[in-house]
Design a protein around this nucleic acid. Structure first.
Lengths: 207, 207
DNA sequence: ACGAGGAGTTACCCATCGGTATACATCTTA
DNA sequence: TAAGATGTATACCGATGGGTAACTCCTCGT
């Protein structure tokens, strides 16, 4: 008669399976995104990714249905990180300027991490029709939140007047570009980079 | 006895041939760069380009030795346009701030044109080893000129103090990003976009 | 007139790579 | 302990696309 506490519950077991499956999916994504960021999406073959994970290509297809899905999941993780931070900031108190600054800091930090970098390096022509639509929608969500905060700041007088659209693009460009030049082993930490870039944007170039 | 004035000079003839060859090379580049910008480099086949020019692929190989060379020539045209403008601005008179503003305006304008757009969309992993080295060297040249002007402005007091490296990247990012959102048929002209982006960077976001 | 070479074509090669069919092992559950 | 689900591997397919071989045609210079 076995100890009842040791008997494998179908629930626990099923949860374990699901958790393990998720962990493996995530492992594929983190490996893939590094390849995408260093070699480019097109130049990365799924055999590369499989080899790095010490499995074979069909194993990857056991967790994902296509290369396109893998890329989309990578950019989704990056974009949702930004969007979630942006939405939290939008909702909280403070002047428009304070909220914009907080938003930009979070945005900048995401851009120093793998999935954020992948977002900037991915142009929508690389995605399939379906993923492209969802990709654009996510980017648009972020854009709208950003513009919202900018407009608030212009109205409450804490931000300089201007075309919110241009201001939004200027900010996005400067922050997205971090993904291209930031190096984890460089002289500046991610925090340093985020803070100084945001400060430069806020204060402007002129003295 | 034919009219000597009508006789075809070997010089004129050779010059014609060379000029025509150059014109055809240029035609390949302008067609290719549009494909690269709209579909991405990897997704563009040389058959696409050839078809658009109403010739066949080997004809293209008559003018270029590889797909890599075509891409490199495209980014070279974009980068040299920026570099030449930057060098002219650096040499001329005026305060650091005035020169930086002029440089940024030219830079921004290049980013609204095909070869400039290609520069931003090309990451160096897409180039062969040889081209990649030259690509990086050209970008570095521009970076150094830009930093030079920035440092001048910080020293003469017309620009705000800061880390020239971060300021340089912030500017590059904001200006390069224009290539991603500017649309020739949109509400703003290239001049509008350039002027307002530069103004935003100069004045800063805070009021 | 004729040879040389530039310009272009057709037909082809072959490496790469996304994706699949299928077999085998393992683990779960009744 | 047998049945079914799950995970992984081997072997393969088929399309795409960079690049080449070899031939034709035209133009020019001698």
């Amino acid at each position: 008669m076995p100890d009842p506490a040791l008997s494998t519950s179908p629930w626990g077991s099923r949860a374990d399976r699901a958790a393990e499956r998720d962990a493996k999916r995530k492992a594929v994504l983190t490996t893939a995104v590094r390849f995408f960021n260093s070699k480019g999406f097109a130049a990365t073959s799924l055999d590369d990714v499989a080899k790095a994970l010490q499995v074979t290509k069909p194993t990857i297809y056991h967790y994902f249905s296509s290369k396109d899905e893998i890329l989309f999941e990578c950019v989704r993780l990056g974009l949702e990180a930004i969007r979630d931070a942006a939405e939290q900031v939008r909702a909280r108190g403070g002047s428009g300027r304070e909220r914009l600054e907080a938003l930009m800091l979070e945005y900048a930090l995401v851009m120093t991490r793998d999935f954020g970098i992948c977002v900037t390096r991915t142009s929508d022509d690389q995605l399939g029709d379906d993923s492209r639509v969802r990709f654009r929608a996510l980017k648009r969500e972020i854009d709208l939140i950003l513009r919202d905060v900018i407009t608030d700041g212009m109205e409450d007088g804490t931000l300089a007047q201007g075309d919110p659209r241009v201001v939004c693009f200027t900010i996005s460009g400067a922050l997205n570009w971090i993904a291209r030049w930031y190096r984890p082993n460089g002289p500046m930490t991610a925090q340093d980079v985020a803070r100084s870039t945001v400060a430069t944007l806020m204060a402007g170039l002129a003295s």
